[in-house]
Simulated assay, not measured.
Amino acid sequence: MTDNTITPDDARARLKDLVEDIDFTMLTTQDAAGNLVSRPMSTREMDENGDIWFFLSDESRQADEAQAESEVGLSYADHKGMRFVSVAGTAALVHDRAKMEQLYSPSLDIWFEDGLDTPDIALLRVRPTTSEFWEPKHGKIVMAAAMLKALVTKETPDDTMRNEKVVG
């Protein structure tokens, strides 16, 4: 259900907060046989334009798949906080050294032995076309109490989750 008190700008800002706070996503691409393939990726940033950035090797399967079929999906889940995000967008490989310097952190040295000098390092930019998120409207404790009440009374729980759709 949509909470009518949230503006589109507030929804975009909340989407950014969720994407950057949850961090890990499952990036879904399409392989050469047309199968959907997902793998975990760590979000580096959702910028002021709404683009979501990741580091990867431009020699990786996900890079090849994103170049062959740019339509991708991102799925974020924080099951403990009951917060979820789904993003449909278009992906592009980017080799912008300044952007890499802005987003790189030493924790990435695990995957990129030579840091920013790793020969095949690249960025993957996902430009969302449609995003959607779900989270407790009134906090996790209130939601849990409503669910418990619904179990006891055998009634459908109140509208406890906020669900917002963000286009673009």
Rank of each mutant, 00 (worst) to 15 (best):
E101Q: 13
M147R: 02
E155L: 03
R125I: 03
L36E: 06
T160G: 11
L15I: 01
F24K: 02
A91G: 05
R14I: 05
F24M: 11
R162I: 15
N35T: 06
K99Q: 07
Q30C: 12
V166R: 02
V87C: 04
S70N: 14
R127L: 11
Y104W: 15
D64N: 12
A146N: 10
H138Y: 03
R125Q: 08
S57Q: 08
L15M: 12
A98P: 04
L148D: 09
K154N: 07
V166M: 03
L74C: 02
S38R: 06
N35M: 14
R127V: 11
L15T: 03
S57H: 13
K16V: 08
S75D: 11
L103C: 03
D120E: 10
V167H: 09
T7H: 00
A13K: 14
A122C: 07
S42T: 14
D114P: 08
W134P: 04
G168M: 03
L116M: 14
A13W: 06
F84E: 10
V85E: 13
P119A: 11
N4M: 10
V37F: 04
T25M: 01
N163S: 11
G81M: 04
D114I: 01
A92R: 08
V126N: 04
F112W: 03
V19S: 00
E113K: 15
F133S: 09
H138R: 07
A98W: 09
W111N: 07
M46A: 05
T160P: 01
D9N: 10
P136R: 01
E113S: 15
A33S: 14
V142D: 14
F54S: 00
I121E: 02
R44G: 06
L36N: 04
F54Q: 00
T29S: 05
R162C: 08
M147I: 13
A150I: 07
F112I: 00
K154R: 12
V152G: 00
A150Y: 04
A88E: 12
D23M: 14
K99M: 08
D159C: 03
Q62W: 08
V87A: 05
W134V: 09
D10H: 08
G34T: 11
G139H: 04
